[in-house]
Computed example of a mutant assay.
Amino acid sequence: MKRSAALLLAIALCGAALLATLQHFAAPRIEQQRQAAAERALLDLLPAGSYDNRPLQHPIALPAGGLLGNARAELGYLASLNGQPSAVLLPVTGKGYEGPIRLLVAITPDGQLLASKVLQQQETPGLADLLAPNRAAWLHGFAGKTLHDDTASWTLRADQGQVDQIAGATITSRAVTDALQRALRFFDAERQRLLEARP
């Protein structure tokens, strides 16, 4: 009986040691794959060939609150091509109908909105859900806009402007347009610091 218990204990210890060894050798690869997935998710805003660095390895510390409206300190990222800045990625938060709307925006060095996407939101599914595939096209409509564009080009049609709002989701639409403009204002105010955030 003691011999069987000792044998089972030895097998269990060998199994645990084997698992620990496998985990030790697999951990770097798992972490590398996790970082690659995170990078793909964040960098899909940037056109292919528009950067040749690893932007996630060049984080920019951003404060909580202020123009970006983030609840806590966040990180932005600098993309560069041939050693020159090509885009800055900034997280920005808007106040949606159901709660915060977290966006990631890519801005060119001359202050043009390159692209934007929703990272997190709680808007009504089927009505104002910004993560729905058909909402991405609405967000694409802001690409190319700058702070220097006339007010009407940033204002919803519901407010006598030129921007189509999401049907049945005017508050959500206003929150997003406001957040995008605030991100551009933050970039404009912090341009030098953001573009010089290189190692």
Rank of each mutant, 00 (worst) to 15 (best):
M1Y: 13
Q122T: 13
E190T: 05
H148W: 11
D178N: 11
Q121F: 02
R174A: 04
L131V: 10
K117P: 01
F187Y: 11
R198I: 14
A143Y: 03
D110E: 15
Q181K: 14
T93M: 07
G168C: 07
A36T: 11
D129K: 10
S50C: 01
M1V: 12
G66L: 03
T177W: 05
L81Q: 15
A37M: 13
L22T: 10
Q32P: 00
Q23D: 11
I30E: 14
P133D: 02
V163T: 09
L43Q: 05
A12D: 06
S116M: 09
S173V: 07
T124N: 05
E31K: 11
A38N: 13
E98R: 12
A87P: 02
P109L: 00
L43W: 07
G15T: 10
L131W: 00
A5G: 06
L68G: 05
Q160C: 00
L90N: 09
E74N: 06
S86I: 06
F186G: 04
Q121N: 11
L194Y: 07
G65F: 03
I107P: 06
T93Y: 01
T155H: 02
E31A: 12
G168H: 03
T108V: 07
R40N: 14
N53A: 00
A17R: 05
R54N: 14
P199Q: 04
A79Y: 07
Q121V: 07
L147K: 09
R157V: 15
R3L: 12
A169N: 05
G15D: 02
D164M: 03
W154V: 04
A152F: 01
S153C: 02
T177G: 04
P59E: 01
G76T: 06
P85K: 08
I101H: 02
S4G: 01
R193T: 15
L103H: 07
T177V: 13
R3V: 14
R29W: 15
S80T: 14
P28T: 09
S80D: 12
R40G: 09
L56V: 12
A136H: 12
E196Y: 01
A38R: 15
L62G: 00
D110M: 04
G96N: 06
P55A: 02
A169P: 00
